[in-house]
Design a binder for these strands. Structure first.
Lengths: 190, 190
DNA sequence: TGCACTTTTTGACATTTATCAATTGCAGGT
DNA sequence: ACCTGCAATTGATAAATGTCAAAAAGTGCA
């Protein structure tokens, strides 16, 4: 089954009936897009949640002329603009691909209908949101109680794959530091 | 009705049937506790979500001998340890009252049963988690793209009430800065 | 009212990190 | 293999913030 990675991820969170899985399969759009493709632009209202079957993506926003990376995600994970998707308001973030990628996605309208039709999936919806909340919570704590070096080390340890594949500058702003600073931390480790 | 503030808050997020509201009313525990009372201690597994009818509370964790405030909440808002409640694992945080307070609360087990019995409430559960996610998201952005002064100004503007009532030292660590730094920012504003 | 304790303010100084700029390194396309 | 351009590294310097300590202000209680 083509969407197996997604369902594996979903059912690990909460069980989904076969009927619900079939419905989802019909909804889902699969796309293969090249590095650099923009999934969501500033000003758009986010109406899709993406699941990366393959590839790498990041979300970022601008501060003056600088790009601050808000999130980086690799295969078997979800990507969406929290603010824009939940509020259905124009996004402050851009989402773009850092590698050629294979994506599954569904619109918010489709998912709302899905949840309405399969109430048992609501437990899953909550669970998924809760997982996101946990990540945000964890990151908030790290940002305030760890030094730059500690944040670097933890990231390298927790996400070795992304650490290797994503450009240094994006990781730096993701971790809340200057890219020169991150480069120096790396140099110190040799 | 004594719990009206809570229901006002809940139904603003998503509608709740009368039966569901009645069930909730039966579940809820109301407590009046003095300033300094500890709602959750480090090592405990959080099993209660609190709603402040009146008062002020904060969650904090320790870094060495320092206390870092993770969250501050006033009346008509919820307080719980995200990590401990969702994972049902021992808390890293302490939750304490900064003022004499009136609280409503329910255990996780009670709420799980409530959601099982009233599936319509699941939409509300998701919506509430999503609101928390939004706040975390917003705060994460502020922490990385705003200067200390900007964070101070925004907090004072967005939460004037908490800004006045909570001790400076707690606000400082909440905003990710030293209390001396916050004091100087304040002094500059006169 | 006054004492004891805590919190806030303020100053001097140290440290960390950002900024800016130059150089080196690397990857893609032809 | 060789340009071309973007990314990473490195150095010099500046700016912001933390640290430590002392003084001042505030708070609660006897």
């Amino acid at each position: 089954m083509p969407t197996s990675a997604l369902f594996k991820r979903l059912t690990a969170v909460a069980p989904l009936s076969v009927a619900a899985q079939q419905h989802l399969t019909q909804i889902l759009l699969r796309q293969t897009l090249p590095k650099g493709a923009v999934l969501l632009a500033v000003g758009d209202v986010s109406n899709r949640v993406f699941f990366l079957e393959q590839g790498l993506a990041r979300a970022f926003y601008k501060k003056g002329r600088k790009e601050l990376t808000a999130w980086i995600v690799a295969e078997d994970d979800f990507m969406y603009s929290v603010y824009s998707y939940i509020n259905q308001r124009p996004s402050h973030e851009t989402i773009e691909l850092l590698e050629d990628s294979v994506l599954l996605s569904a619109t918010r309208a489709e998912l709302d209908e899905f949840y309405a039709q399969f109430p048992e999936a609501n437990g899953f919806r909550s669970a998924l949101t809760e997982q996101y909340l946990l990540r945000h919570d964890e990151r908030l704590r790290a940002l305030r109680m760890l030094t730059t070096t500690e944040r670097h080390d933890r990231f390298a340890q927790d996400f070795p794959d992304i650490y290797r594949r994503a450009p240094l500058q994006h990781i730096a702003t993701y971790l809340g530091m200057n890219n020169a600073t991150l480069s120096r931390i790396r140099a110190r480790k040799t």
